[in-house]
Amino acid sequence: MRLARPAFALSLVAALCPAANATPDEARTWLERMSEALATREYDGLFTHSNLRQSETMRIVHRMEGRNSVERLVSLDGSGREIVRTPREVHAYLPDRRVVLVEPRTDGGSLLKALPTPGAELDAQYLLEARSGSRLLGRDVRVIEIRPRDAYRYGYRLWLDEKTAMPLRSEICDQAGRAVERIQFSKLDMHTNMPASETEPSVDASGFRWVRSARPVADRRVAATGWRPLKVPPGFRLVGSRVQSLPGNPMPVQHLVFSDGFASVSVFIEPGSRSAPAPAEASRMGAASTFTTTVRGYMITAVGEVPPTTVRDIATSLAPASDVGATAPPAR
């Protein structure tokens, strides 16, 4: 019989010791370190992604090509789906559908730059806390708690490697502190000069249908109709808007991004079917919620890693800018 894992014994010790809590400023500093590490370090990890409905093992590989990051995430035991983010595009391989979705990468775009970084404004929506934690994967960890102040956003519980600030475990939690999703690393190696072959897709996509975003074309129906929110959940604000095309969609869509400083919600607005409007529908994919409704002949879909109520409230709050007396935002 194998011995109990050292981490388990250490966690018991940690549970008996008073946690050394730190200020929100320290938690913010850790969040900034984590974001920097995730975006700029080279690493290769295996993790289990679980919620109560399913559990999958995935591999993530992240390497740098100059100042550009290249990332590959692959499901090892489930659908075999894989996402590769190259310097120019994001490829989502869906072997179960024999489809590859191709989306231009938009780093450095004005919309991304408009997103707020974790700052003091987070305090209005979240309670931040940093405390010492037990060891994971043989490494000392810092536990960062991001607790939502209301039910319109999820909280996060992050176990960060004290040395690299890389998250070794993360949980998305509801307002009651219950985890709705967990990512737990079983292996995480830091690298330098990782070979490019490690971020090559393993899927043989020959014979797959490659569905690319069409070249953006101005469409009078979308471009002429700016949309504005009448009311959004507390803390969320519109941080950007653009017209873009999406894989497999012949019509350009208006893409609005809302953020509370940590969580973000995208809203896609496209001309709907000219037949009878489809009933509103809500779905969940992991911790991501979606809500689709039809307003004045347009199909509005909100998606984001937020509770279902938040995407519903944002989607149903939108109206043509002419209705709210605002000028449509310029298309980017």
Binding site: E103, V211, S264, M285
Partner: peptide, 18 residues
């Protein structure tokens, strides 16, 4: 597939952990 496309597009405007 439509929702997957939306999520891929949305992911570019999420934080790294998001």
């Amino acid at each position: 597939q439509r929702l997957a496309g939306y999520l891929v597009a949305h992911s570019q405007f999420a934080t790294p952990i998001g």
